[in-house]
């Protein structure tokens, strides 16, 4: 029965040529086939820059001569000249690590990130090193949003100063960004995090990712995460978040200062792919993910991933 039905359907289609003819003569579909429209989006990212404003000094140590905000600035401007749609993101630990932070309290780090045109950042544990007040004091110097999806800052000086998520529009693309922070107890002194409440990272990430993907219909959902890449012990990490997540496409990691040679691709709770990428620390590397979106004829399209990794990457973890 099934066989004969499908046969008669095929005969019918052959006879009237409805599908193929319809597609061929439809004016706007054919014009699109002639010049397929592609939207390209370039994500640039840093993590754990740790007040590293100058390059590492030429003192013979491992990272001698690497990094530097002025070089990062020119690289970013060059990419912005080449690409129409760029998002520049940071996954936290902006503060602490050089005397710039001890002397100026993070003012210069935030001012420079604003000059470089960062679109958003999340908070790392060291961003609390001068207390919640120490960060909120520098916030007026930021012309970009701080995204925190799992810190509740009520009754602190950061109340109403951060965003649980942000939607960015680039061309026809909508990109949702969330920010996930690490548990502060045991890592940051109580006097520094004060009344900040740490909320379950996986529940919060999934809540806002669903809102962004389903309700806001974002084409891409990015999670800035300061959880850390992975741990020996059963501590929540980017790997655990990735596996238990839904609706997140990319996790830009931090905290563990991991120099990943390539992103790790894991299956999320729905069996869909989610990528984790982290590029070391101290502004030694600039991470980059280029996304190409097409107006597809079918909703289901296979996704090809190609890797372009620069040759001389640091192996330090």
């Amino acid at each position: 029965m099934e066989e004969s039905k499908s046969k008669s359907r095929r005969d019918f289609l052959k006879k009237f040529g409805l599908l193929s003819a319809g597609l061929a003569v439809s004016p706007w579909i054919s014009s699109e086939a002639a010049s397929p429209k592609i939207e390209k989006l370039t994500i640039l990212h840093t993590n754990d820059v740790h007040s590293r404003i100058d390059p590492f000094p030429m003192d013979g140590s491992r990272n001698a001569g690497l990094g530097g905000v002025a070089r990062r600035a020119s690289l970013i401007s060059q990419i912005r000249k080449e690409e129409e749609h760029v998002l520049l993101l940071d996954a936290g630990d902006i503060f602490q690590g050089t005397p710039y932070f001890n002397l100026y309290g993070g003012e210069l780090e935030i001012k420079l990130m604003s000059k470089l045109g960062y679109d958003a950042a999340t908070l790392g544990n060291h961003d609390f090193d001068n207390g919640v007040d120490g960060f909120s004091k520098q916030l007026p110097h930021a012309n970009f949003p701080i995204i925190c999806s799992n810190y509740d800052f009520r009754n602190t000086s950061l109340e109403n100063s951060t965003f649980p998520y942000k939607v960015f529009r680039k061309g026809k693309l909508k990109i949702g960004v969330i920010g996930i922070g690490i548990e502060l107890d045991g890592l940051v002194e109580k006097k520094n995090y004060g009344e900040t409440i740490y909320l379950d990272p996986i529940i919060q990430a999934n809540k806002y990712a669903e809102l962004l993907k389903i309700e806001e219909k974002c084409d891409l959902v990015i999670c800035l995460s300061h959880l850390g890449y992975k741990y020996k012990e059963q501590k929540v990490s980017d790997q655990i978040l990735a596996k238990q997540s839904s609706n997140i496409d990319l996790i830009i990691g931090a905290h563990t200062h991991t120099f990943m040679l390539q992103p790790e691709v894991l299956k999320n709770a729905d069996g869909k792919e989610v990528k984790i990428f982290q590029v070391g620390y101290a502004g030694i590397n600039l991470g980059r993910v280029d996304y190409y979106f097409e107006y597809a004829r079918q909703r289901k399209t296979s996704v090809a991933t190609s890797m372009l990794i620069s040759e001389d990457l640091d192996q330090q973890v």
């Binding site: 592609i38 891409l220 990428f277 190409y292 107006y295 909703r299 996704v303 991933t305 190609s306 890797m307």
Partner: peptide, 8 residues
Amino acid sequence: LVLSKENV
């Protein structure tokens, strides 16, 4: 819009 390619 459907994601068709990524370069990392």
